[in-house]
Structure formats: structure tokens, C-alpha cells
């Protein structure tokens, strides 16, 4: 129980650190959001000094850095990241209201990635047909190398324009979900496939596998009864990491497919340097990352008895070294 609480405290620290990091990048690096705001409103910086001063006061950029940081952190703890510079709306609300369609695509993509990535790795290492194994295991490195914006456009060309099977754009209905999800799943599934295949190969070369074979076990028993469960451990860690990336990948897919969602909001916010919105997105992404990893970490001892009785925490790094 204490281990769980300690792990929870760690997660909160990471979230706080993510907020701090985004504050450092967004508010302390050179670049003046106020001038951007006035510039974008008037098509050139011709605002009066009073106007500038008023906006500066409104965004609190005249305070000393630590005071700014303190105020923003306090507000963020209440879910307030400030008002969007572009629209004047509440940044948190803007991001959260865009979340459902993004979650739908990301969730579907995660399922696709795990099923296909995992399936390719398992089948590629299991089959005795060398050509099939070569073919399957060459897919993940390929998938990692393809630019996802290009893959999305290719899919539109083939499935929407050539075959007319699926809608090219929009965010309504299940059919519109398919192409974006496939696009989003491709790099993620490729990484899962690559890591699981490598990990399976490593496990199959372990001495304990020889003992299982010496017992007279079939290939299937060796593969699924012994190697897979050991090999799944690093792959599981990976799922926690890449799932957070799905949210980021939606910046590309939602732009390509003109879908509503957090990705579109982010891309639009960056293009007008809308700092509050960008910060809200980053903290949200860190929240997803932290939550997923928390779940993975709590799941770990269930799968690996070696970790069950170790008091205190094992970081992901130590585990991958073990």
C-alpha cells in the first residue's frame, strides 16, 4: 500500500515538473505573446502604449518571474491555465471540450496498434516459414520510417478517392474514424511490434527455454506458455509510453483529415502562439502519460513475481536494465 502511495506522489511530482517545464519554455524563452496578440488583432503592431500596457497587465507578464510562476501554478491547480490569447475563451475548457473525438481516435488506434503490432511480432517469431517470418518482421522497421502525414494522405487517395470506400474528411460517424485511426496506429504499432519481436527473440534464446524444450514441450507451449509472458513485460512498459504519443500524433492526423479535436486545437494555437492553450495541452499530455504509466507500474508486479516483494519503487530504467 505504501508503495502505491509513493508511486502516486511521484506521478504528481512529474505533473508539477511538466507544468514547470512548459512554463520555462513558453513564458521564459524570448518571444512576446502580447505583441503577437495585438499584432494578430490589428494586422500589425500599431497599438497605443496604453493598450499594450493594459494587455500586459491582463496577462500578468510584468510581474517578477517567480510571482508569475506562483500565480500560474496556483491557477493551474484549480484547472485554470488562463484565457486563450486568440479567442479569449478559457483555455482549459477549449482543450477539454475538444477531447472526446481525439480520445475516440486514439483509443481505436491503440487497439489497432496492440493487435497488429503484437500480432506481427508473435506470428513473425512463431512461424517456421522463413519467408513469412522475414516479411512480417521487416514491417515494423518500415512502419517507423514512414511520415504519418504522408501515410494519411496516401490512405485518403486510395480509400476515398480511388475506391470511394471511406470518407476523406470530417469527424462524424464510425467510418470517418477508420483512416485517421489507422494512420495514428501505424508508428505506434510498429514500435510495439519491433520491441515485442526483439524481446521474444531474446527470451527464446534464454537457457530456461532449452529446459522447457528438453521437457518435450511443443513449440506452441514454449512460445505462448513461457516466452511470451516474459517478453510481454518490456512491451507493456512501452505501451504506457507510446499511448501518450497518440495524443501528440493527433496533431498531424487531425490536420490531415480535417477532424475536430485536441490536435487541431493545438496546431491552431501554435500557429498564433497562443501560449495558455499550448500549456494546457502539454500538461494534459503529461497527465495522460503519468496516468498510463501509473497503471502499467501497478500492473507490473502482477505479471512479474520478481517485482512483487521489492519494497519501494523500481524505475522503468532499472527494469529495462534488469
Amino acid at each position: 500500500m505504501t508503495a502505491v502511495i509513493r508511486r502516486l506522489a511521484q506521478a504528481i511530482v512529474v505533473l508539477w515538473a511538466a507544468f514547470t517545464l512548459s512554463f520555462v519554455i513558453l513564458y521564459l524563452l524570448p518571444g512576446d505573446a502580447v505583441l503577437t496578440k495585438l499584432g494578430s488583432a490589428d494586422g500589425g503592431i500599431n497599438a497605443s502604449p496604453e493598450q499594450i500596457a493594459q494587455v500586459r497587465a491582463e496577462y500578468g507578464v510584468d510581474d517578477p518571474v517567480l510571482v508569475q510562476y506562483g500565480k500560474r501554478l496556483w491557477a493551474a491547480l484549480h484547472g485554470d491555465f488562463g484565457r486563450s490569447i486568440a479567442t479569449g475563451d478559457d483555455a482549459t475548457h477549449q482543450v477539454l471540450s475538444a477531447l472526446p473525438p481525439t480520445l475516440a481516435v486514439s483509443g481505436f488506434a491503440l487497439v489497432l496498434a496492440v493487435v497488429f503490432g503484437g500480432g506481427i511480432a508473435v506470428l513473425g517469431t512463431y512461424t517456421r516459414a522463413r519467408w513469412l517470418s522475414h516479411l512480417l518482421l521487416s514491417l515494423p522497421p518500415l512502419g517507423i520510417s514512414l511520415p504519418s502525414f504522408w501515410v494519411g494522405l496516401l490512405l485518403i487517395q486510395v480509400f476515398s478517392f480511388q475506391l470511394g470506400l471511406l470518407p476523406a474528411l470530417g469527424s462524424t460517424g464510425f467510418a470517418s474514424l477508420v483512416l485517421p485511426s489507422v494512420t495514428l496506429a501505424l508508428p505506434t504499432g510498429a514500435i510495439i511490434g519491433q520491441v515485442l519481436a526483439k524481446s521474444l527473440r531474446t527470451q527464446l534464446a534464454q537457457p530456461y527455454v532449452e529446459i522447457v524444450r528438453a521437457k518435450g514441450a511443443s513449440r506452441r507451449r514454449v512460445h505462448f506458455g513461457h516466452a511470451l509472458r516474459n517478453a510481454a513485460l518490456p512491451a507493456l512498459t512501452l505501451v504506457g509510453v507510446v499511448a501518450g504519443n497518440l495524443l501528440a500524433g493527433s496533431v498531424i492526423t487531425e490536420t490531415v483529415f480535417s477532424r475536430d479535436g485536441v490536435g487541431r486545437v493545438t496546431a491552431a494555437a501554435v500557429s498564433v502562439q497562443d501560449i495558455p492553450v499550448v500549456q494546457a495541452v502539454i500538461v494534459l499530455a503529461a497527465f495522460f502519460f503519468v496516468t498510463l504509466n501509473l497503471v502499467v507500474d501497478l500492473l507490473y508486479p502482477v505479471l512479474d513475481p520478481r517485482l512483487a516483494r521489492v519494497p519501494g519503487e523500481l524505475t522503468r530504467r532499472e527494469r529495462s536494465h534488469a
Partner: peptide, 12 residues
């Protein structure tokens, strides 16, 4: 590493 690469570069 907790913030996805694309988002981090977008922030920068």
C-alpha cells in the same frame, strides 16, 4: 520524456 516529442517541439 513524459511530454511527447511533437508537443515538446511545438511548445518550443
Amino acid at each position: 520524456q513524459a511530454v511527447p516529442a511533437i508537443l515538446l517541439s511545438l511548445a518550443v
